[in-house]
Amino acid sequence: MSAPATATPRPRRLPGRIGGPLRVFAWLSFLAEVLIIGTGGAVRLTGSGLGCPTWPRCTADSIVPTPEMGIHGVIEFGNRTLTGLVGILALAVVIGIIVRTGGRRALPPTLWFALGGIIGAGAAVALGVALDIPAGPLANGILLVAVIAAAVRSVRTTPTRRDLVVLAWLVLIGVVAQALVGGITVLTGLNPFIVGFHYVVSVGLVCITAAFLVRMNRPDLPRVSAVAPWLRWTARGAVLALVVTIVFGILTTGAGPHSGDPDAGRSGFDAELLEHIHAWPSYLLFALTIALVVGAWRQRELTPLLARWSIALLAAELVQIAVGLFQARNGLPILAVGVHMVLAALTAAAMTAVVLHLSRPANGLPDAEPRVAADDHVEVRA
């Protein structure tokens, strides 16, 4: 008598990687966040920080720069204009992930919040014009509150991939907040501490967009540690060293010659001393990254993406160290300083990817497997 046939288990559907237009907009958002660091650096390094001496207008009577402002006005206004593009891309990612996780019916409440923010900001501008008072900060603040309220509502009601929804909203909130910080930077005459904070937020936004790219490439599954405790602690030490390096780099810049405008004040710190202090944690970071590469490479079959990203991080640091030494020994040429600023953001993005790949799916599969098509789901047999 033949054995009874057993039914083939039905495949279990797991939430998979995100594809389609959302992937394109997510990459464009990341690239735009990096680009605006470059243009912001150009504003400061060319002495165009007060090319448009007021905010949000370039002058009391003109939104755009006037011919009398010359190239400095064009450079400053160009950076302000790019903020709009960065915001549009961040909004596109928010809309895309909301539709992807909750369907089109989840979108209208968010749009109502946006409309309320726009109306409130417009009313603030109209009031400012009527009373002849600067209403830009108030309008921007109202818009920021509306975006935060929309984000809270969206995150609380999203049914899946809440991690991606949170990251998308954080970028949009950060872009709106950066517009306000940028205005304060101009209104305070390029205070070096405000300028430094402006850069820190920009680097943070690069890291958040990088985290979104990493997370959208992995299934929404429980995760467990994929590395030995010593390697995880090495990664934490590398993160701390990177943060300290960036902070002292900002302080060094705030005491250095590139103020953004001839009349802008400096922090008053000893720039040469800060330059040396800035280098010490960077060498520690380099040593810790070598340890990361060795540890990740030894277990590359289990964590292939961690091995690749640790090598990418090491490569970014090598280039960054080379550029840093070059600019220090050649009188801080503006092009080298600008490249150094952008490389710091890219190094932080690579570090973000490394940290996120210290874990793996709890089902035992590495993040690189199984491969999926551009959209949605992975079929696995029970």
Rank of each mutant, 00 (worst) to 15 (best):
I173L: 11
R57Y: 10
P108H: 09
S310G: 08
G256Q: 06
H258R: 10
D132I: 10
L318N: 14
A135N: 07
V86S: 06
G189Q: 09
R161P: 08
T245N: 09
C58H: 11
L313M: 13
P108I: 10
E33D: 11
A291S: 14
L170R: 01
L231Y: 04
S29W: 01
L35K: 05
T39I: 04
A42I: 06
F248R: 02
I321T: 12
V243M: 11
A179P: 06
G78V: 00
L167Q: 03
V129Q: 14
P257T: 10
P53N: 08
G295A: 10
M216A: 04
G38N: 10
T209F: 00
I118M: 14
A349L: 00
G96M: 06
R44G: 00
V145G: 01
S62C: 04
L284C: 09
R104Q: 05
I250P: 04
V372R: 13
I18C: 07
T352V: 00
N363T: 13
T352A: 00
A264C: 10
L302E: 13
S259Y: 11
A146H: 03
R232L: 09
T157D: 05
G84Q: 01
V342L: 09
V206W: 00
L288Q: 11
F286T: 08
L138K: 06
R236L: 13
M1G: 13
N217M: 06
I311E: 05
P134H: 11
A114L: 15
L213C: 04
G103A: 08
A255K: 08
P229Y: 05
G40R: 01
E33N: 15
L242M: 13
V129R: 12
L45A: 04
P15H: 11
A287F: 12
V129F: 09
N191C: 08
I75V: 15
G19Q: 03
A362W: 05
T347N: 02
G183H: 03
P4K: 08
I250C: 01
H377A: 14
S62T: 15
P257H: 15
G16Y: 05
V175R: 01
W55Y: 05
L164W: 09
L115P: 03
A382T: 11
G38E: 05
S48E: 06
I95Y: 07
V247K: 07
R161I: 11
S359N: 07
A374C: 03
G19I: 09
G364L: 11
V34W: 01
N330E: 13
L346D: 00
I250Q: 03
L356F: 02
T157H: 12
I246Q: 02
Y283M: 11
G117E: 01
F197N: 01
E272W: 12
I18A: 12
L107R: 09
Q299L: 11
H357E: 06
P11A: 15
L274H: 09
L251Y: 08
L167V: 07
A353F: 04
G41L: 00
V175T: 02
R232I: 05
A7S: 14
A106M: 12
R215S: 07
V380H: 09
R232P: 05
W55I: 04
G183A: 02
L82N: 01
V342R: 01
T81L: 15
L89E: 01
S48D: 03
P222L: 07
V94T: 13
